[in-house]
């Protein structure tokens, strides 16, 4: 099995898949750390549906899906924020509206275009075979930008998710940081749909954070461990997907779900066994 796995690295598409996977894992988990605590993690799910619609449009028009999707999904992210702020609408309702509209539009376009072809299907559930060099450069670039922004604005982002009103009173431009988070989410979703798929990409935002939150650590450790776990999930998911010829996105999500379950049950059993302690 290890021999088979080593053999994978002799293929260019597998190396690209691992590089893109690790980059997206880092981006999604870092953004997810803040979105989950803001109770806004479903924005990733909503935006991925919009990405599905824009990919369908791009394929219909014959243009590059990533470049076409990026600005539209970013606009959708800002629209969700504005609807939440101005239109007397809760965040989940705004996301629901945008998501269903995106899915409906994508399905209608796919139908007009002769149904779900191989290209559109690969964007729905992810395919490592379709990853190209441009995706590698984009995903590495995006993850470097996200890591830098999180390092630089770590304290502001922590204040934003813990107590937004307090952050605002203390001079933090909360609206700007909300827009920044929304756009970074849109960028991560757009870059990630090649490997993971529009239907599954939001799991990379949610699973690592909720898994590590079960361990009840400090905020700093939670963010760091969540990023590490995200990379581990993607590496194992991609490896299993290669070894057993399974769809990459679905395998990563299933493996992430399995890890969450192990951590959740492990923590519950430890607590039941009377070994409850608080290590932050």
């Amino acid at each position: 099995m290890i021999g088979d796995l080593l053999e994978a690295f002799s293929y260019g598409f597998m190396i690209r898949a691992f590089v893109v996977g690790v980059s997206i894992a880092l981006s999604a988990s870092l953004i997810g750390s803040f979105l989950v605590l803001k109770k806004f993690s479903m924005i990733g799910h909503g935006l991925s549906h919009v990405a599905f619609a824009t990919v369908a449009i791009a394929l219909t028009l014959g243009s590059a899906p990533t470049l076409f999707t990026l600005p539209i999904v970013s606009l959708a992210a800002i629209l969700v924020l504005k609807m939440n702020e101005k239109a007397s609408m809760h965040g989940d309702s705004a996301i629901g509206l945008i998501a269903t509209m995106g899915l409906a539009l994508g399905t209608v376009l796919a139908s007009l275009n002769g149904g779900f072809n191989v290209d559109l299907y690969s964007y729905l559930f992810g395919s490592i075979l379709t990853i190209q060099s441009i995706d590698v450069y984009l995903s590495v670039g995006v993850s470097l930008v996200i890591i830098t922004l999180v390092l630089v604005f770590y304290q502001e982002l922590f204040a934003l998710v813990y107590d937004e009103e307090f952050a605002r009173i203390n001079g933090i431009k909360t609206k700007r940081f909300n827009v920044m988070l929304a756009i970074l989410t849109a960028v991560t979703i757009t870059i990630g749909i090649r490997a993971i798929g529009t239907m599954l990409i939001s799991s990379l935002i949610i699973f690592p954070m909720v898994s590590v939150m079960q361990l009840r650590l400090s905020f700093k450790k939670t963010v760091i461990y969540s990023a590490i776990l995200s990379v581990v999930n993607v590496l194992f998911g991609l490896s299993i997907s290669y070894l057993y010829n399974l769809p990459s996105g679905s395998t990563i999500v299933l493996f992430s779900g399995f890890v969450f379950l192990v951590i959740y049950l492990g923590v519950r059993m430890r607590n039941l066994g009377g070994f409850r302690s608080e290590k932050v």
């Binding site: 304290q155 502001e156 922590f158 009103e165 952050a167 933090i172 939150m213 650590l217 400090s218 905020f219």
Partner: peptide
């Protein structure tokens, strides 16, 4: 503030991390 924010059991922050926010 009137309401203590985000004090649910799972929120991953220590009392020290929260208090430091006062110096932001």
């Amino acid at each position: 503030p009137q309401h203590i924010m985000r004090a649910e059991g799972l929120f991953p922050a220590t009392a020290e991390e929260v208090a430091l926010m006062g110096l932001l």
